[in-house]
Simulated scan of single mutants.
Amino acid sequence: MAIDAREKEAIRAVAERLADAYGATRTPEEIEAAITEAHASFTDRPVRDFVPVLVERKARAALGKNI
């Protein structure tokens, strides 16, 4: 399913928030990987409205492990 501009912008905002929150303990590559993995898990979902929120929650959980 194609990602619309609104979702792309929301995911960029998620990336900025996570970089602010985890930048001191995680590399930019680790943050990007967590976002990419979380986002990929919602690829086949037809309702896209809440995907950015769910991606942020899933990525935060992944980044919060093993600190």
Results as ranks from 00 to 15, higher is better:
Ala2Pro: 15
Ala2Phe: 11
Ala2Leu: 11
Ala2Ser: 12
Ile3Leu: 08
Ile3Gly: 06
Asp4Ser: 04
Asp4Gly: 01
Ala5Asn: 06
Ala5Pro: 01
Ala5Ser: 08
Arg6Lys: 03
Arg6Cys: 01
Glu7Pro: 02
Lys8Gln: 10
Lys8Asn: 09
Lys8Gly: 07
Glu9Met: 01
Ala10Phe: 01
Ala10Pro: 02
Ala10Thr: 04
Ala10Tyr: 02
Ile11Leu: 15
Arg12Lys: 10
Arg12Asp: 15
Ala13Arg: 02
Ala13Tyr: 00
Ala13Pro: 03
Ala13His: 00
Ala13Asn: 05
Val14Arg: 04
Val14Glu: 02
Val14Ile: 04
Val14Thr: 02
Ala15Tyr: 13
Glu16Gly: 13
Arg17Ile: 00
Arg17Lys: 05
Arg17Val: 01
Leu18Gly: 09
Ala19Cys: 07
Ala19Trp: 06
Ala19His: 09
Asp20Ser: 10
Asp20Leu: 11
Ala21Asp: 11
Tyr22Pro: 00
Tyr22Ala: 02
Tyr22Cys: 04
Tyr22Ser: 03
Gly23Val: 11
Gly23Cys: 08
Gly23His: 09
Ala24Cys: 06
Thr25Asp: 14
Thr25Gln: 14
Arg26Gln: 11
Thr27Glu: 07
Thr27Ile: 06
Thr27His: 07
Pro28Asp: 09
Pro28Trp: 07
Pro28Gly: 13
Glu29Trp: 06
Glu29His: 07
Ile31Lys: 00
Ile31Pro: 05
Glu32Thr: 12
Glu32Gln: 14
Glu32Asp: 15
Glu32Ala: 13
Ala33Leu: 11
Ala33Arg: 15
Ala33His: 10
Ala33Phe: 10
Ala33Met: 12
Ala33Cys: 08
Ala33Gly: 10
Ala33Gln: 14
Ala34Arg: 07
Ile35Asn: 15
Ile35Trp: 09
Ile35Pro: 15
Ile35His: 13
Thr36Cys: 09
Glu37Phe: 12
Glu37Ala: 11
Glu37Ile: 13
Glu37Thr: 12
His39Trp: 08
Ala40Met: 03
Ser41Asp: 06
Ser41Glu: 06
Ser41Tyr: 04
Phe42Gln: 15
Phe42Val: 10
Phe42Gly: 10
Asp44His: 12
Asp44Trp: 12
Asp44Cys: 09
Val47Thr: 14
Val47Pro: 10
Val47Ile: 13
Arg48Ile: 03
Arg48Ser: 06
Asp49Thr: 01
Pro52Arg: 04
Val53Glu: 03
Val53Trp: 05
Val53Arg: 05
Leu54Asn: 03
Leu54Lys: 05
Val55His: 08
Glu56Met: 04
Glu56Cys: 00
Glu56Gly: 01
Glu56Leu: 01
Lys58Thr: 08
Lys58Pro: 03
Ala59Lys: 04
Arg60Thr: 01
Ala61Gly: 05
Ala62Lys: 08
Leu63Ser: 04
Gly64His: 02
Lys65Gly: 08
Lys65Phe: 05
Asn66Asp: 15
Asn66Pro: 08
Asn66Arg: 15
Asn66Ala: 13
Asn66His: 14
Ile67Trp: 12
